[in-house]
């Protein structure tokens, strides 16, 4: 859930208007049942990722097809995330540096992180996550003096309908997380104690991220008003620009950008892992050679988006029309199949 907070406000406010901020938490909470489903699959089939499980349950070919879809989605979206790194830097603080430098720098980090394995990746997120939280809280806290009074009111003037659309806009974001979870469970412990711990962890992540993202949207609506929030492409970056510390230090967005880079690297790297896992499960390809191949693909996809304006749109299309339906259908079906099989075995 690394980079959701950047474009989130624009989406939900466009859909939900002034009350868009309310949609964030319900949208993210959808992740919880899915997370629990995956964990219950984990307890049944330890040390296997969801692709392997679906191969076992649905037969080889269906499993392979799912794996290929999974691979395409994660590879494509991961490349898009890499492109986002380039876009936000070029758009907001270093305007004249060519794109490929950002792509290369970001990819270098992603690749280096991936080379060091999932454990280092987990620790990296563990270190960077508090930084992100601190940066967000600072960003929000320092923006309080720019709040326009009354921009949040009236609450629910348009009724509940826009909120439902807003929630639909949010759901793809937790689905990314769910898809990552589907891959990573291979490496998770499956003991009883560990399962309980993981469940708590899923709840905690969803709510922590949900509350933070909600605050991020809220502060943007409060400061910019709904119209401006929709208009700004990355409102949080603009917010970072407006921050002033006691009238002397202004424009600390470049400091915030350093942290956002970490978030995007985490996200991109998660998709990198997902792609390599899928490659490994479906086509049985692994090793340095294929990881290099994946990074080349990432780079290729990123270079495909030299037009920054179409990038956000492309990302949101992938989210809404690929990630969302795929995860939405695949995981419950798999879970149901596993349940059904389990029960028939008992009889």
């Amino acid at each position: 859930m690394g980079g959701t907070f950047l474009p989130l406000a624009t989406f939900v406010t466009a859909a939900g208007g002034r009350d868009g901020w309310m949609t964030v938490l319900p949208g993210l909470v959808v992740a919880i049942p899915y997370g629990l489903m995956i964990l219950s699959l984990l307890s049944k089939y330890p040390q296997k990722n969801l692709l392997q499980i679906s191969e076992r349950l649905f037969g080889k070919w269906v499993g392979k097809i799912i794996g290929v879809i999974y691979m395409i989605i994660s590879g494509y979206y991961g490349g898009l995330m890499l492109a986002v790194i380039g876009q936000i830097f070029e758009q907001s603080i270093i305007a004249l540096t060519p794109r490929w430098v950002f792509y290369l720098g970001g990819l270098m980090l992603v690749f280096y992180l991936a080379e060091n394995g999932i454990e280092v990746f987990a620790r990296f997120s563990e270190v960077v996550f508090p930084l992100i939280v601190i940066a967000m809280v600072l960003n929000i806290g320092l923006s309080i003096q720019r709040i326009e009074p009354g921009e949040l009111m009236p609450i629910l003037s348009e009724g509940l309908k826009p909120l439902i659309f807003g929630v639909l806009k949010v759901i793809p974001f937790p689905m990314e997380y769910i898809l990552f979870l589907a891959g990573i469970i291979k490496f998770l412990p499956s003991g009883k104690q560990a399962l309980v711990h993981l469940k708590v962890e899923v709840w905690r992540t969803v709510f922590l991220v949900g509350i933070l993202d909600m605050l991020v949207v809220l502060i943007q609506i409060l400061v910019f008003g709904p119209q401006e929030t929709v208009r700004l492409s990355f409102g949080l970056l603009v917010l970072g620009k407006m921050v002033e510390i006691s009238r002397t230090i202004a424009g600390v967005e470049s400091l915030f950008m350093m942290v956002w880079l970490g978030a995007l690297v985490i996200k991109s790297c998660a998709f990198f892992f997902m792609t390599t896992w899928a490659l490994e499960t479906v086509l049985n390809l692994k090793g340095l050679k294929w990881r290099v191949a994946v990074s080349v693909i990432f780079l290729g996809i990123a270079f495909g988006f030299l037009r920054g304006t179409s990038l956000t749109k492309e990302a949101s299309i992938v989210e809404s029309y690929l990630i969302l339906p795929f995860a939405f259908v695949w995981i419950p079906t798999l879970w149901g199949a596993a349940r059904w099989k389990c029960e028939t075995n008992v009889r």
Partner: peptide, 23 residues
């Protein structure tokens, strides 16, 4: 920047202006 101490004129920043236009 001293306007707050006097409160005889509004301090209008670009962001505020745009937000007001947005209403």
């Amino acid at each position: 920047e001293q306007g707050e101490n006097l409160s005889t004129f509004p301090t209008v920043r670009l962001g505020h202006y745009l937000t007001v236009l947005g209403t």
